[in-house]
Amino acid sequence: MHAPTRLLASQFGSPHGVTAQDSYVRLLWHLAFYFALPLGLIVLGGIAWCLVRYRAKPGSERRASQFQYHIPIEAAYTIIPLIIVAVIFGFMFNAENHVDRVSRAPAVKITVEGFQWGWRFVYPNGHQEIGTVANALNINSMKNLPVLYMPAGETVQFTLKSDDVVHTFYVRDWLWQRDLIPGVHNVADIDVKNPGIYDGQCNNICGQYHAYMRFLVDVMPVKQYKAWYAHQAANSITTAGVTVSS
């Protein structure tokens, strides 16, 4: 790959997202770097140039120039950043409209509920997946975590709820998060393209066991998800790490 292509393909340190919204996030991320790199280099270069070129040398008779204003230059570095900001805002506005769009007919609706300290995922037929830190108070173990099962390639609509304190539903590979705030009705759509198991975690300080408030997302191909869902009895409860006998 030659250099420009490589630059375009670079993620500038950010992981690849796995959702349909990823292209918008990536576009903004790239845009920020395309503006920031040259601007940052100009500023750093200017500082370095001043320090090297205009440093007072012992014995030199050179005097500092006493100019104070230069209207054309000042106007230029006011107007050019304004244009850059306007461009960034335009792209951002467009991206935001796509990322935040809420579908009227999502394929699956799941209610995500956070509590101190654990997660409850409620499916349309009343089936619940629950996990609490009481069953997973070992940071090095990935067992006994609550699991959110969902299909890949379909729009999944989350209703985000909390009844105690503020939590945040955050999955790092989705490059996305949303708060669960008591008293705020939050709905968001996510379309995960790649099946797989993803790490999730509460991302807002919610008390003592905040760090342990983790979960897993099991994104399955649609057929597999439908089979799993058909297998879940209405209003049944699966608690991670605890075997419930009926």
Binding site: L39, V43, C50, L51, R55, A56, L82, V85, M92
Partner: peptide
């Protein structure tokens, strides 16, 4: 978002003014 992005403009002006202040001076480090 619009207002937050706009703050970058006056902050940028400050940066260029700081560079302008050093420009053609005799700088003691």
């Amino acid at each position: 978002a619009a207002l937050s992005l706009l703050i970058a403009v006056p902050t940028g002006i400050k940066f260029f003014n700081w560079i302008g202040t050093m420009w053609r001076g005799t700088i003691t480090l």
